[in-house]
Design a protein around this nucleic acid. Sequence first.
DNA 1: TCCGTATATTACCCATGGGTAATAAATAGT
DNA 2: ACTATTTATTACCCATGGGTAATATACGGA
Lengths: 265, 265
Amino acid sequence: MDDGHIPSSSLSPWLPFESRRRARDEKREAVLRTAVALFLEQGYHGATLNEVARRLNITKPALYNYFRGKDEILYECWSIGNELVDDCIAETSASTGSGLSKLRKLIVRYAELMTEDYGKSLVRFDLRDLSEDNRKIVQTAKRRIDRSFRDYIAQGVEDGSVKPCDAKLAAFAIAGSLNWIGHWFQPGGEMTGRAVAEEFAIRLTEGIATTATRKTAQNAAVPAAEKADKPPRKGNAPREDESEHHTRAAARAAGQSKRARGRLR
Amino acid sequence: MDDGHIPSSSLSPWLPFESRRRARDEKREAVLRTAVALFLEQGYHGATLNEVARRLNITKPALYNYFRGKDEILYECWSIGNELVDDCIAETSASTGSGLSKLRKLIVRYAELMTEDYGKSLVRFDLRDLSEDNRKIVQTAKRRIDRSFRDYIAQGVEDGSVKPCDAKLAAFAIAGSLNWIGHWFQPGGEMTGRAVAEEFAIRLTEGIATTATRKTAQNAAVPAAEKADKPPRKGNAPREDESEHHTRAAARAAGQSKRARGRLR
DNA sequence: TCCGTATATTACCCATGGGTAATAAATAGT
DNA sequence: ACTATTTATTACCCATGGGTAATATACGGA
C-alpha cells in the first residue's frame, strides 16, 4: 500500500538515522503507545507488527527486543490501562464520603479514562486474543472493577445515599454506559472527555440517588427508602465470582513481573 | 484439536450422511445460525470456515454455494440482527403514547434482542471486518438506531414526559447500557433476557422521567402536564406515525433480495 | 583502540486459513 | 431412464503475517 503515514519523528525515540541512545523503558513505552493507537485504529487483527514498526522507524524484528510477541504487546497495552483504573479505584476508595459520592467520583475518573487510548483498550480489545495466562489475569481484574462499582452502590444503599436497588444490575447498567464511551468517543468532537465524564456522573446516578442533584429541579419528591420490594437477596451469591482472592496486589505484581523484559536470551 | 463438538444433527439440515433435500433458504439460515454462534463464541478471526462447516456436517467449499466469502457471512449475520432491530423500531413507532412510553418500549425490545445471538452480533462484531460497501450500510443503519433513541427522548422532552436533557448524551448513555448487555449476558444465568430487559427499561429511564415509576412494570406512564416548565405544546397529539408496517416487510424483502444467492455462476 | 553487550537489520521460514478448480453425487424435469 | 442443474467433495493454491536465524552496527567501558 501507500505509506502515507508521517514518520512522526517527534513521537518516536528512534530518529530516522541518528543517535539512538534512549533508555530502554522509554522505547518500550513508545512501542506500546504506537501499538495501542494502531490496534484501536485498525483492530488487533487488522494491525500488523510491520506497521507498528514502520511508524516507529524501525523494523519488525526489533520489536522482539522488547516483547515476546504480538499478543504480549496487546496484553501490555491492556495492562497499562488496568493500572490507570487501579489508580482511579485507589483514589476513590481513599476518599471519604457516602457511597453515592464515591460512586460519582469513580464514574468521573473511569469515564474520562474511556476517552483515552489506554482506557479504550480495556473495553475494545478481545480477551480471546490473549494467552491463557494473561486472559485469566485480565478476567480477574475485570471482576475487580465490576466489584468496585457494586460495592459503592451497595454501600450507598446502606448509608442511605442510594435508593434500594439490585447492585449487580445497576453496576452493569452504569459500567455499560461508561464502557460504551470507549467506542464512540473520539477527541476533537464537541465535548471534551472531562465534560462527558462529568455529565455522565450526574446522568448515571440521577436514577438511583436519593438526593436531587440537578438544578433543573422539578423532580423533588424522592423519598429515602419507600419501596423495598427488592429484597437484598442474601446468601444468593452470583456464580461468576469464584476466585477473587488475589485481586489488586496480585494482578499488579503479576503484571509487573510478567512485563519485565521481552526476550530471554 | 479435539472434535468435542456434538454434530447437533437436530440443528443442521445436513444429516451426517443421509438424505439432504432441504430447501435452499433453510440451509442458508442454518449456516448463519451456526456462524453467528461460532463468531460470538470464538471471535470472528478465531473462528474458521472449516469449523463452521464441520458443525453443519459439511465441508468448507460447500459454504461457497451460499455465500461469497467469510466477510459476507459476517455481514448477513449482522443483517438479520438489524432486521430484528428494525422490527423493534417499527413496532415502537407504531404505538401511541408519550415519548417516554415509546422510549421504554424500545428499550425493552432492544434489550431483549441483546440477549440473543443475532442481537449480540450488532454490537460484538467489528465493522472493519466488512467490505467497504457493507460497512457503509452498517454504519448508516447504526445511525438510524441511534436516531430512534434520540428522537424518542426529544419527543418526550417536548411532551413533558421526559426531563429536559441533552438528547444525544442521554441516548448514548442508554444505548451504552443496552449494548453492553450483549457482552455480559449469557442464557442460563439467574435472570432471563426478558427480566433483564424490563428491569433496564425502568432503571435507564428513572433518571430522566418526570414521573416516578418504580416497579409498575411498563404502564404507559401518562406524562401529566403539571410541570409548566416546559409547556406540553397543545395540539401536538401523539404523532400519528403513518403505518410503519411496511417498514418491516420492506426491509426484510430488501434484505432478502440483497442476500439472494452466494455464487454467481 | 579494542571488546563485550545491547540493539538493529536483512533475509528467511512456515503455519494458517480463506478461497478455487476439478469432479462426483444427488435431484428434478420430461 | 436420460439429462441438466444444483450441490457437495477432494485436492489443491497462495497471500498474509507472526516469528526466527544470522549478521551487522552502535555504544560504553577499560
